[in-house]
């Protein structure tokens, strides 16, 4: 195994979104500058075409390295990981990734619920979950799990979401720590810089 100089991430931020979430990502990611002390995972629903377009698109928006999450990768700070299409992403106790092709959850693979829930078990109160715009309720169960394990919950304000259904379901089901509009989300990302 090659030795890495990048330390394992103590803290993890996961961003989940579906329809209407890409524009938000394109707006907030330019606020990030290296180094970021957290690891960041992006789980978005999309067509299961095996390509790297999303990774390239998001790479162009930030100086933080963006890469597709690979099985057994150690989760390192200052990296943005994209969940590959058609796989669920789980997190092992030793803070490495596992990919999984099991049944779709909420008609989705990757499912936001799966990654939120799995991360909640491992990262506990060092986990922050952000749920963005979308047209189904994937992510809500995962937010509950994160909350139970002491994580921080941020939901995009439904009024500023292109498709408010997903944030609305989240707000109905749990008490979010923050409900942020687009400007506030940008501020949040700007403050992640070390």
């Amino acid at each position: 195994m090659e030795k890495s100089v990048v330390p394992f991430a103590d803290e993890l931020l996961i961003i989940g979104g579906s329809a209407g979430s890409l524009d938000v990502l394109l707006q907030v990611l330019p606020e990030l500058r290296v180094p970021v002390s957290k690891a960041i995972i992006i789980v978005v629903h999309r067509k299961n075409i095996n390509d790297l377009i999303l990774t390239e698109l998001l790479s162009a928006k930030t100086t933080v390295p963006v890469k597709e999450a690979e099985e057994k990768d150690p989760i390192q700070q200052n990296i943005i990981y994209i969940v590959p299409p058609d796989y669920h992403l789980l997190i092992e106790n030793d803070k490495t990734f596992s990919l999984d092709v099991s049944e779709k959850v909420n008609y989705s693979r990757p499912s936001i619920d799966v990654t939120f829930s799995s991360a909640a078990e491992v990262f506990g109160n060092k986990l922050t979950c952000i749920l963005l715009s979308g047209a189904n309720a994937d992510g809500v169960e995962g937010l509950k799990a994160a909350k139970r394990n002491g994580g921080t919950i941020i939901v995009q304000h439904p009024d500023s979401a292109e498709i408010p259904y997903m944030p609305l379901q989240a707000i109905k089901a749990i008490e979010a720590d923050y409900v942020l509009n687009d400007e506030e989300l940008k501020d949040y990302f700007a403050r992640l810089n070390v």
Partner: peptide, 9 residues
């Protein structure tokens, strides 16, 4: 086996 997947299933 991967424990995360086993545990979930």
């Amino acid at each position: 086996y991967s424990k995360a997947s086993l545990k979930r299933r």
